[in-house]
Structure formats: structure tokens, C-alpha cells
């Protein structure tokens, strides 16, 4: 069977995609930029950060492009003033949810949130900022888990579960109190399941999981999950 191709219009431009593609993939393949944060190629899409929302003609709801499959004759807008405003607001909320003081952060210069903030011109927040401090988990000889920078994107959880296959990391509590945990909320050093592969630190978009004594520019590898998935499927 020859592969079916669907036609869609993104920002007025006619593009073609496979019916199994997401809107994000169709856009990216055609050089159209949609910001993302929780999405990482090779991992199951999460749909949590909501940065990638787009407008689909005829649909009153905004759709996350990282999770929504394309369909024939879809008309998509990726950058209306409303969408840009919402994206700025989301970045502001993320920056004010935990303590983000870039100048003293290990991720300064290697951070996807920081990058997005500067791309969208977010240089202050219209909402107040939280300054509640969480204790760092420095128990492990190699890894550091710093909740003060975590944006709860769950990339670390997904890479650990789906790629490494151990599911050491998860979330405890809910809502604003959500927190990344190791095993059943143990100090990292006490974890039985962690294989110390370091994939979590490779995919963490911010400075929340990192390796002691190494510069983030050496340890971050966003393309790792996609690379492994591609290799495996060969």
C-alpha cells in the first residue's frame, strides 16, 4: 500500500504530511517554528507545558501541536497575537513558580527555559514570584536534584521509564505541590532501581538534574532519546 499523504495549511503555507504525523512534526519538517518545552523527540508526548498550543480552524479549543495528529485540509495558525501572549504568560508562570535566578544557576547559558524567555522577550513577570526554598538532593555521588529549578516537564521520568526502562523517577503530591521523587521518595543515594545511566540529566531542559563537577554543555544531550529509539527500531 502506498503511503497516504495529507495536505494541510500551516500559517497560510500549504504543506504535506503523513497521517500519523503530529502538527508539530508537520510544522518542523516544513521549517515552521513552534516553541516546545516538555516535548522531546523519542519520548511519549506529555502535553503539559502548553507552549506548543496552536489554533485549528473550526475548533474552538487550542490544541497542543505535540500531541495532535494532522488531518486532511486542517488549517493551522501557530503564531497569532493571542498565542504569543499565552506563551509569554506560560514562561512567566514557569519563571515565577520556583526560584529562577539565572545568574547563580548551573544552567545559565545552557537552559531551554532561559532561551525561551529571551526569545519571547520575557524580562520581568507580571505575577509575583515564589521564593520558597526546597532542599537539594545531593546525596548521590554523581547526581544532583534541585527542585528549586524543576519545571515538572517529566522528561526525566519518561526517559528513565521509556528508554532506560527502570522508572526510578516519578512525581509525588499534586498541583502546585508536585515534586519529582526518586524511588518511593528516597534520597537518590539510597535508590535501588537507579542504574546511574545519567539520561535524566541529559534531557532535563533546565538546571534541575545535573552531574556534579561537569559543565552542563558537556552533559546535556537532547537528541539522546530520539537516537536510541531510531537505533532500536532498525
Amino acid at each position: 500500500m502506498s503511503e497516504r499523504i495529507v495536505k494541510l495549511i500551516i500559517d497560510g503555507k500549504e504543506v504535506f504530511a503523513k497521517p500519523t504525523d503530529t502538527i508539530l512534526k508537520a510544522a518542523t519538517d516544513n521549517g515552521i517554528y513552534i516553541p516546545t518545552l516538555c516535548y522531546l523527540e523519542g519520548l511519549t508526548p506529555h502535553g503539559g507545558c502548553r507552549l506548543c498550543v496552536v489554533e485549528v480552524k473550526g475548533n474552538p479549543k487550542l490544541m497542543t501541536s505535540c500531541t495532535t495528529p494532522v488531518s486532511n485540509n486542517m488549517e493551522i495558525t501557530t503564531n497569532s497575537p493571542k498565542l504569543v501572549k499565552y506563551r509569554k504568560q506560560i514562561i512567566e508562570l514557569l519563571l515565577s513558580e520556583r526560584i529562577h535566578t539565572c545568574s547563580v544557576c548551573v544552567a545559565n547559558g545552557n537552559c531551554e527555559l532561559q532561551e525561551l524567555a529571551s526569545k519571547f522577550g520575557v524580562d520581568h513577570t507580571s505575577v509575583s514570584r515564589n521564593w520558597e526554598r526546597f532542599e537539594l538532593d545531593m546525596s548521590h555521588e554523581r547526581f544532583v536534584l534541585d527542585h528549586n529549578r524543576c519545571i515538572l516537564c517529566t522528561r526525566c521520568i519518561r526517559v528513565c521509564d521509556e528508554i532506560e526502562g527502570v522508572h526510578t523517577l516519578d512525581i509525588k503530591k499534586r498541583g502546585k505541590d508536585s515534586m519529582i521523587i526518586v524511588d518511593l521518595d528516597e534520597p537518590w543515594a539510597a535508590s535501588y532501581s537507579c542504574t546511574e545511566c545519567g539520561k535524566c540529566s541529559a534531557v532535563c531542559p533546565v538546571g534541575a538534574i545535573y552531574i556534579k563537577g561537569k559543565h552542563l554543555s558537556e552533559t546535556k544531550k537532547k537528541e539522546l532519546p530520539e537516537f536510541i529509539v531510531r537505533r532500536r527500531s532498525r
Binding site: G47, G175, K176
Partner: peptide
């Protein structure tokens, strides 16, 4: 709603507490 938010998405998790504030 703030107490019941699951925390998965940013607008609800981080936005509702600001509304309450």
C-alpha cells in the same frame, strides 16, 4: 480548584495559585 489541580499542565498548576494570591 487549586487544591485539586493534578499539576500536569502549567496554566492550571502555576496559574491558579496566582489567581488566588
Amino acid at each position: 480548584c487549586m487544591d485539586e489541580s493534578c499539576g500536569k499542565c502549567v496554566p492550571c498548576r502555576a496559574g491558579i495559585p496566582k489567581v488566588k494570591e
